[in-house]
């Protein structure tokens, strides 16, 4: 499949899927942390590699990420990224600790991983019930390192030509100034199946 066949309608449909997933994820996190999380922007876009790898500016920018792989009917990748200060803030909230005193030790990483797991899990569950497709999700894996490096393997595996299709949600918890981006990328054949499942075959 070539992405040149994707039209605005397809992108709108994927954006709507993103809305459904992200809505569910935000609700799950809000109730888990007992705070108000706002969903900012959901986008479904055909991005160049470098647009996709530079979500937070430079590919060298240090970010925290939780990764889950989707297998089963569909193959895809869910990555939840936070700038390090936001990651510490959200982990601090869960651990009841001052974020400025947190290091990325085992406990902090485990808190970040749990939050990523809850959000990504509820996102994918919503997609699954909407599309009627089965998504098997892996356990979460967590890492703190350069933005570009955390994304490059996923971009490589989902690229068609020099583009990737990325369904991206920015989330902000205003009171505590936490900003994060949830990125979902499907492998090309799976994207086609996903569109078919909602009556939008290419």
């Amino acid at each position: 499949m070539g992405y040149e066949k994707l039209e605005a309608d397809h992108l709108d449909a994927l954006k709507e899927l993103g809305n459904i997933g992200a809505g569910n994820a935000v609700t799950a996190l809000s109730s888990f942390l007992n705070t108000e999380i706002n969903m900012e922007v959901v986008e479904a876009k055909l991005a160049t590699f470098n647009e996709a790898a530079n979500i937070f500016g430079s590919p060298e920018k240090e970010v925290a990420a939780v990764y889950l792989s989707i297998s089963g009917n569909l193959k895809g990748h869910v990555l939840y990224l936070w700038p390090v200060q936001s990651a510490k803030a959200i982990a601090g909230m869960l651990m009841g600790m001052n974020p400025d005193e947190l290091e990325f030790d085992e406990m902090t990483m485990s808190a970040i991983s749990e939050i990523g797991n809850i959000m990504s899990g509820s996102y994918i569950t919503a997609l699954s019930s909407f599309t009627g497709m089965t998504f098997d999700i892996s356990p979460p894996a967590v890492a703190v390192d350069m933005n570009g490096a955390l994304l490059d393997g996923i971009i490589s595996l989902t690229a068609v030509g020099d583009r990737v299709l990325i369904i991206q949600t920015s989330m902000v918890a205003y009171g505590v100034r936490i900003a994060g981006v949830l990125a979902v990328l499907f492998e090309p054949d799976s994207l086609l199946k996903l569109l078919e499942s909602i009556g939008m075959g290419v």
């Binding site: 990764y67 792989s69 297998s71 892996s138 393997g153 595996l157 492998e187």
Partner: peptide, 16 residues
Amino acid sequence: GSKMFNVSESSLLDIG
């Protein structure tokens, strides 16, 4: 060529 995430069942596994 690194492996950024410690995963066991993803296509990401050994790409690096």
